[in-house]
Simulated assay, not measured.
Amino acid sequence: MTHTVILVVLDGLNYTVARHAMGHLQAYVGAGRAALYQLTCELPALSRPLYECILTGVPPIESGIVHNNIARLSNQRSVFHYARDSGLSTAAAAYHWVSELYNRSPFVIPRDRHTRAADLPIQNGYFYWSDHYPDSHLFADAESLRLAHAPDFMLVHPMNIDDAGHKHGLDTAQYRNSARSADIILADYLQGWLDAGYQVLVTADHGMNNDRSHNGLLPEEREVPLFVLGDAFSLDPQATPRQTELCGTICELLGVAHDKPVCRDLLRLAS
């Protein structure tokens, strides 16, 4: 059976903060309707390399996207490529680096801010370029895309948690409250997505440290959450997903051919 999928990447969200600050998501876990797993992000713990890792299943050291200033198209195949090539529809409300990785590089604001192009991997997109672009606007952008295009796969990628971490650090009220705010905003949309039949994954690219940065091996920089919601997930507490398995697992949910690693323990066996 094939499914539609929404992937939410809450940029810069540390696992421990996600575990204690995301009350709405944790309500689903407590009700037995979701599961929370801890992932260890690949290295380096930087955004553009890990967008590439999440969406292609390829670690940065192999993809060549090894820091944030490498602005070029990916030379790997992403979820967007597999979905488009299988005749599915794709969408993203995301930071402009995602557009540069999979659609066109460099990002040209008047051309790429609003994307409608059936031939591109990300066919329908709203892309932003300021880290303080409000999460409330970003989620509204995503919902607008969903309602207008009913994408089979959609990426939702807000930045305010990461922005708060860079301004204030991990162990601060501002960082924790930014996570709480994202959880509250997500609460406006999550049940509607599930009611529409979407399988939902909520994760992060990397965490944050008290130096207001991330790039190294500290647990607070590398440990990130993965919430999964939807009837296609096993909710198996013994599952041990890896960040490199997210692309292939999403492709399995979409029912598209791919050659990526998969965490099969995350998925409910077909009857």
Rank of each mutant, 00 (worst) to 15 (best):
R84Y: 04
H149R: 02
L145V: 01
V98T: 10
A92V: 03
K167Y: 12
T115R: 15
D119S: 14
F107T: 10
F139I: 04
N160H: 11
A93T: 00
H96T: 05
R146C: 06
A91Q: 06
A140N: 07
H114T: 12
S74M: 09
N103K: 09
A164L: 07
V108C: 12
H132P: 01
S144N: 12
A93V: 03
A117Q: 14
Y126T: 09
S78E: 08
N160I: 12
R111T: 13
R146L: 04
Q123D: 10
I109T: 15
Y133W: 10
K167A: 15
Y95T: 09
D171V: 00
F80G: 00
N103A: 09
G87Y: 07
G169A: 12
D163H: 15
P158G: 06
M159P: 01
T115Q: 15
S130N: 13
F139L: 05
D119R: 11
N160R: 10
R146P: 04
Y126M: 10
D141C: 05
V79P: 05
Y128K: 03
D141N: 05
R72D: 09
Y128S: 04
S78Q: 09
S105Y: 09
A83P: 01
A150E: 02
A94S: 13
H149F: 05
L138G: 06
D171M: 05
I122C: 11
Y95K: 10
S99E: 13
Q123V: 01
